[in-house]
Design a binder for these strands. Structure first.
Lengths: 197, 197, 197, 197
DNA sequence: AATGAATGAGCCTTCATTCAT
DNA sequence: TATGAATGAAGGCTCATTCAT
């Protein structure tokens, strides 16, 4: 008798193995055989839970984005003021769960391949738009719209840029350092543009 | 008697075809056959000028980095004051030659694959260190070292982050917009931290 | 559920196809595609059962040597006296299973390529040492050690030399003729050197 | 102005490079590029002096056989009696020029590939027939034809077998040892079969 | 549901051969 | 005569995907 509810479990298990394989071997060498071995299952079974490899990669991506979204939503709920809302978005991106070597590596690898994969590109941009929107709303309560827009764009770029640098350096990511740099940026924007408001 | 001086020409030609192929098909599908066809040569010839595919990719990377380095050096020479030196570094990164869709796509694709390719990672980091150093020197003349260090780090992250976003959006990159955003960041840093000096 | 015990079967099947292909096309033109076709399987499957082509060739060689070893051991068991033991070794080398055109061709082809393949060379020499040892032991019971050593060496050379000639001539090998020639050699050695003992 | 008589020189030079390359890399990896480099000429030039690679290999083979033939003829001329004629043939095969590691390796490699190359096989057999004939004539003056035939066949096999073993062992060949073993064989044949004549 | 054997397309790479110079 | 750049066919190998069990 087949176990009930195995499907979501298996999918999570395989997605985790995919992330781990991408980190260990690189996206190009993260073969289904390796992913399956890492998940402790057979090669063939992957096609019971995903259409094909593209689908697995796509769902892996979606999973990363979803984790980040959930993290962001939770922190936004706990925020009390506009500045807190901005920093909530920032901190979500550097939360331990997101800001780990494995996840960052997977993310960056997927960025690279998204450029020629419309589906991937699409969800990336949806996430990007939502992040930007959150930041804009936060800043908008603190300064004029034009400045808020630029401040938000800058903050988003800073987040991505820091990620990129940590990922490439291969250092253990330092959430505190990232947080401080971003906080400083946010406060500077508020202090300068907010003062004129 | 064979033509003299063909080697550097052919290598440039093939590197250009590689960049173009990466943009068109993605790094994973930029096969030697496609690169050769785009360069108008046969598959086999690639191995006269490069050890293997990895070597071609590596040299493509090195070429991109070298172009950026040259661009940066030229603009640094033309700069008159510390602020100008910082902006020279910034503008070099958004110079038309660098800030084109083709080049950005190639760059981002290579970032992704560099994570598991020590050689690529190495030259990436050398470039990153030099960029950071240039920025630090510029800022150092305008504010205390501790602040200069953070300002430089922020500027570098902003540059990379903006690139990332442009690359992912697939928009035509807008150098002026990028320049304005970065200028604003630089001026804000100077205004705030420089004032206390 | 996959079939159990397929592995040794497939390996034997592929080794047989390799021997046959070497005979038909020569070692240089015994491509994996041809071997696979002869075995009635696809090209890819070979790499499920062997690391790579070298491994297949190596195992083919080992298989030939092992067949000869088994044949030799069996005949040695059935031998009653020293002379019988010497002739057992001789006859094993000319047993129908070994002394067929296909097998001889494969053997000679592999000799040629073993010269620059340390692994092949190694097992060849192990086999050669064992053959020589068997012959030496046989002769040693019949004559002084110094003579036995030379007689054994001569017998081994005769066996290999006859093989070579049959292989090159492409004649159907004639085990009886080979047996007679070797027997005569053995008897002459015994008659001459054994008399002095 | 082209040098006169360059053709035979170049051919010898290339054949020597071929032999050396076969020894160093094995027949399979003795590419025209390597042979050319070893001869100190360009790749393309080989096709001015040989039809194609097969032709070069064929001529290399013929050169080896011809050297052996000349050596044999010279020694036969110097021989005074039947026994001397037999040993002349034997010694020619183990003359330093023939019995060198490079030459033996080339020879054995070519044996292997001759099995599926009718042209090579043909000249091999012509040589073999001549060798056998020389030996037979020598023995025929010393014993009845039937015995002479077998003695000649045995001697030929011994020669080839010893070659094989030296080649495979990779030892420095020991002409004296080979000579002694063969001499002993010849003398034993004469002593035994010749006595009854 | 699960296995892993089997397929076959496609990739990188090598190499004999040709050809412009 | 000589070079070595260039071609293109073919080989070994990998891998997503399918399928019998």
């Amino acid at each position: 008798m087949p176990k009930v509810g195995m499907k979501p479990l298996r999918r999570k298990q395989l997605i985790a193995a995919a992330i781990s394989s991408i980190h260990e071997y690189g996206l190009a060498d993260a073969t289904l055989a390796r992913i399956a071995r890492k998940a402790g299952v057979s090669t063939g079974i992957i096609h019971h839970y995903f259409d094909d490899k593209n689908d697995l990669i796509f769902e892996t991506m979606r999973s990363l984005l979803e984790d980040l979204r959930v993290e962001t939503v939770q922190r936004l709920r706990a925020a009390n003021d506009p500045r807190g809302r901005v920093l909530a978005v920032v901190d979500a991106s550097f939360a331990p769960q997101q800001f780990s070597v494995e996840v960052m590596t997977a993310w960056l690898s997927l960025y690279g391949s998204a450029l020629n994969a419309p589906e991937l590109r699409r969800i990336f941009n949806i996430y990007g738009a939502r992040l930007a929107s959150n930041l804009r709303h936060g800043f908008a309560a603190l300064m004029p719209m034009a400045e808020a827009r630029l401040a938000a764009e800058g903050a988003a770029a800073l987040i991505d840029g820091l990620w990129l640098q940590f990922a490439l350096k291969g250092d253990l990511p330092d959430p505190d350092h990232a947080h401080r740099l971003l906080s400083s940026y946010v406060d500077l924007q508020i202090a300068y543009h907010g003062a004129r408001q």
